[in-house]
Design a protein around this nucleic acid. Sequence first.
DNA 1: CTCCTTTATATTTTGCACAATTTAAACGTA
DNA 2: TACGTTTAAATTGTGCAAAATATAAAGGAG
Lengths: 146, 146
Amino acid sequence: MKPAFRLEDHLCFSIYSCSRAILRMYQPVLKKLEITYPQYLVLLALWENRECSVKQIGVLLDLDSGTLTPLLKRMESKALLQRKRSLDDERIVTVRLTEKGAALKEKAVCIPETLIRSSQMTEAEIQNLNRTIKLLTQQVTQGQMK
Amino acid sequence: MKPAFRLEDHLCFSIYSCSRAILRMYQPVLKKLEITYPQYLVLLALWENRECSVKQIGVLLDLDSGTLTPLLKRMESKALLQRKRSLDDERIVTVRLTEKGAALKEKAVCIPETLIRSSQMTEAEIQNLNRTIKLLTQQVTQGQMK
DNA sequence: CTCCTTTATATTTTGCACAATTTAAACGTA
DNA sequence: TACGTTTAAATTGTGCAAAATATAAAGGAG
């Protein structure tokens, strides 16, 4: 039997495409907050731990220093956070939120709500989808290791 | 009740993250074929219709000319396709596969198989997930229109 | 035919992603 | 203590994405 090798059957494409559609939907809110989506993710990480190393942020978001270093510098120049080399271990750069960065949390809660509302899905359906996709990510990443 | 406003609860992040994980998994194969992932998507579109306008490719992949023009030029310089301005309507640029571009199809069938295999999911589960994500994309995009 | 609007593509600019390499600090072990 | 290894961040280079703008051809109303 011949596999249907069509664009529309590609799960990778529907995920890639969905991700970009969500980012487009977020744009108006992100623009108001004057941040980008990856910057929002960094803020999410820092709202949970006010202080973090670049390495830890990289593990949480699965991004490397080549992406994070310039991104964090841009956020620093906007006074959302501070970067400081650790005294204990000078290889480590510690990132901490400023008041301004912490204050953005208030205005950002509407972001995930936007997605929940527009998805027309129940809370349970969303959690279910979230679990499924995380599992897929894990499988794909593990398959990568070997 | 207070909403849990955590990174791990964000569906947008799990989708964004999954998409990148799949791309990372594809890298070794894509590198062998000397193409990038968006270039693979363009090829998928062209394997279905050997000839296409830039506009049509943009609709299929949901990408604009700002992304496609340089991407298609790179593919042209690698002799995977030809770009030619239409004689009927000079605003339109027609893209058609070369033999080399068409021949890549053989070697590319393993790409979606890679994902299917590593996902550890049944064909039915994958189709189901594909449908759910497409529906979500649609809802998110429609919510955007208003 | 002329002006106005629409359409298709291209250009410019900003900001990710990520591979590959570099730098420098920290650590381990003889 | 010296030396090789590991680790954390930064740097460099390529290629998307997407907003904003530009260009030029096509189509339509008067």
